[in-house]
């Protein structure tokens, strides 16, 4: 097929737009990366693009020498790991139960979960519930309330429904209990979908800060990396409106002589917080896309 002028114009416009898309997406990340590795005092002059002008590790040294940030990193990792393990295991268990045709309540229990996808109690009643359960100012708020999420449940159940019944029947004939069947037969067979859900949960947990903000903000020992970065954004926003410019100055002032600025520290924190996601997401995308497809056939 030979190219007409029409084709050439079209292809040029297309390539131009795609390149524009790529630049607009990547430039802000590269810019933050460059600022994080640039000397903070030099960055104030402006004009740092995608490569550090005056290379410095000062911003990172400053972050990692702050014990609160180190502790927040540990909490971030812990909440992610614990939530992934508990949620995947528990969700799979419920999914197996509601996939059993002989279980009379399976429709009712499925409905109870599906309803929660549409209706929730809202912020204030939920807050008082967590308080009366002593989950405020507690690490457990990070993994207990969300143990089984309806969406993940439906994703795993759909997968189990697609498995052959003969595996389960032959295990039953050999006298295996339901729980043994779940552990020894269902879990291994479900490995692909469990990996998908584990990735959903991990990205969500790593990125989430709202629970820390609402329930655990008064306890620095329970803070996470996302929340520490969020606090830095808040002081930057306060500086924009000037409403508490003094606190922003105090923040900068407390650092005088240490040759870092709030902007540079924010850049370095942003890199630290997003690095794990950026490192793994290219490998996750195919799982997310399948997850999206399975989620589409819910109900």
């Amino acid at each position: 097929m030979k190219k007409t002028t029409d084709d050439i114009i079209f292809d040029t416009a297309k390539v131009f737009m795609l390149v524009f898309l790529i630049i607009v997406t990547l430039y802000p990340f590269l810019n933050i990366l460059a600022i994080s590795f640039n000397d903070a005092m030099d960055s104030i002059r402006g004009g740092v693009n995608i490569w550090p002008r005056k290379f410095s590790l000062m911003n990172y040294e400053k972050i990692f020498s702050n014990p609160n940030i180190g502790h927040a990193a540990i909490i971030s990792v812990l909440r992610t790991v614990i939530a992934v393990i508990t949620q995947v295991f528990c969700t799979a268990m419920v999914a197996y139960t509601i996939s059993r045709k002989e279980f009379v309540l399976r429709k009712f229990i499925t409905l109870l979960y599906v309803i929660t996808m549409y209706i929730d109690g809202g912020l204030i009643p939920t807050y008082f519930l967590m308080r009366s359960l002593h989950l405020v100012n507690s690490f457990h708020i990070y993994w207990v309330p969300g143990l089984v999420a309806a969406f993940n449940l439906l994703v795993i159940r759909t997968y189990i429904n697609g498995l052959s019944e003969s595996f389960i029947e032959s295990a039953k004939l050999e006298g295996a209990s339901d729980f043994t069947i779940f552990l020894k037969v269902i879990m291994p067979l479900c490995l692909p979908v469990l990996a998908t859900v584990a990735l959903f949960v991990a990205v969500w947990q790593w990125n989430f800060w709202f629970d820390t903000f609402i329930y655990n903000s008064s306890n620095i020992k329970l803070s996470t990396l996302q929340y520490e970065l969020m606090k830095k954004i808040q002081s930057a926003n306060a500086a924009v409106s000037g409403s508490s410019a003094s606190s922003a100055f105090a923040e900068a002032g407390g650092m005088s002589g240490s040759r870092v600025t709030p902007t540079s520290l924010r850049a370095a924190m942003t890199v630290v917080v997003s690095l794990p996601i950026i490192a793994v997401y290219p490998f996750l995308q195919k799982y997310f896309v399948t997850g999206l497809a399975i989620g589409g056939v819910k109900g």
Binding site: F29, N31, I32, I44, G46, V48, I233, V273, Y281
Partner: peptide, 30 residues
Amino acid sequence: VQTISYLPHFVSWVVAANIFLNVLSPDSGI
């Protein structure tokens, strides 16, 4: 193109907000 264009979806809004604070900054924003 697809891999690059998914990237912002996976980072948190905290990270994205930080990026926009930078891009829109009156001091040296692009």
